[in-house]
Nucleic acid binder design. Structure first.
Lengths: 193, 193
DNA sequence: ATAACTCGTTCACTTAAGTTAAGAAATGAG
DNA sequence: CTCATTTCTTAACTTAAGTGAACGAGTTAT
């Protein structure tokens, strides 16, 4: 199971056996059942998550409605805002599927950054990369219509459309479930003609 | 001038005189005239930017139309996507006002990370913080209407509405300039009643 | 087996954004 | 200062998303 992780890391830096053992000994792998809530609005937490297998989502509840804003699947991770700024969380995190996670916390990170400065380098590179990718994502969202965003998603993360309920996808696309239904019907209609 | 920078950095780590001198000696401060283009679509570049004073923006040209997707003002920085993934840029960067910038490049960064590991720590913390903030921003964008987004901007970055042309603000809000005009008129109408 | 719920779709209607065009106001160049 | 250009606003019309309601299919609980 940790091989998934080491394969991923090896794209960025090479690890010694010592370093690998150090990671394994941390005992940070968790298996979580579909539907489990990892974090609730208003809670404080110190946990960061990295998905090895499965899918988790972040969502808000606004006027009684769930608004899903992000999905994290294989080899994607998040450190919730509430961990960074030590304030109550503004959103929920829960498992879309049965999921295998790495769960981290800042103290643990600090320790391993101390022991292996290479880890901190890795984390810097990863988060800078993620930041740039995230910005492009946001740019695409801003510069396109809901229909274009849906077609774009179909290209870039076709798996999501299969593994995630429509109404969660809708808010992820910034629209209502009814609009997503209609938009899909519209696209289907076009492709027939 | 560098005091602006050192004040900012001191919120995160304390620097020795040695470290400060090392930064100053890099000669990375640049003064740029309003309207200057720093990066064009299709170009490759190694430059990262950090704004000490003034304002820069990123924009795309899609179907002949400028789409502004981000503004960076005092104490904000960006490393363009093209620097991270060594590919031609998808967007332009230019100065909205006369601007004082710090211009960096990866080699320089690597050198100073070597000399002062503290810098790499600082950069990791900053980019993780930025990533979380950026995510919240995106979440707010997705979960609100253009009108709400405008009102939100009015709260959070009122300066932008003053210092930036309307049509650039419009695409930043994900709408057309005409829609922004209308939306503003609508809000003004409401507040009168 | 049935009732209660959730989920996706459809419909009619409302509201707001996109589009096209025109003109006023502000800015910049010669 | 004047002309040209850019920027902002307004208006009429089109298109698509929001809203509220209803329905059937699938799921869960009793």
């Amino acid at each position: 199971m940790q091989n998934l992780l080491f394969d991923f890391i090896s794209k960025y830096v090479s690890l010694t056996e010592d370093e690998k053992n150090s990671i394994t000994s941390l005992d940070i792998f968790r298996t979580i059942k579909k539907g489990t809530t990892l974090l609730k609005e208003g809670q404080k937490s110190n946990e960061g998550y990295f998905v090895l297998k499965g899918c988790i989502r972040t969502y808000y509840i606004i006027d009684g409605e769930e608004k899903t804003t992000a999905f994290y699947t294989e080899m994607e991770g998040l450190t919730p805002h509430c961990v960074i700024n030590k304030a109550p969380s503004g959103y929920y995190i829960s498992c879309v599927e049965d999921t295998i996670l790495i769960v981290t916390n800042p103290d643990m990170e600090a320790d391993s950054f101390n022991k292996f400065p290479k880890f901190e380098s890795l984390c810097r590179v990863l988060s800078e990369e993620l930041l740039a990718k995230q910005q492009i994502n946001f740019d695409e969202f801003k510069t396109s219509s809901p229909e274009q965003r849906y077609l774009n998603l179909l290209q870039k993360r076709p798996d999501l459309i299969q593994r995630v309920p429509q109404h969660q996808l809708a808010s992820y696309l910034g629209i209502k479930p009814q609009s997503l239904s209609r938009l899909r019907a519209r696209i289907h209609e076009k492709s027939k003609r």
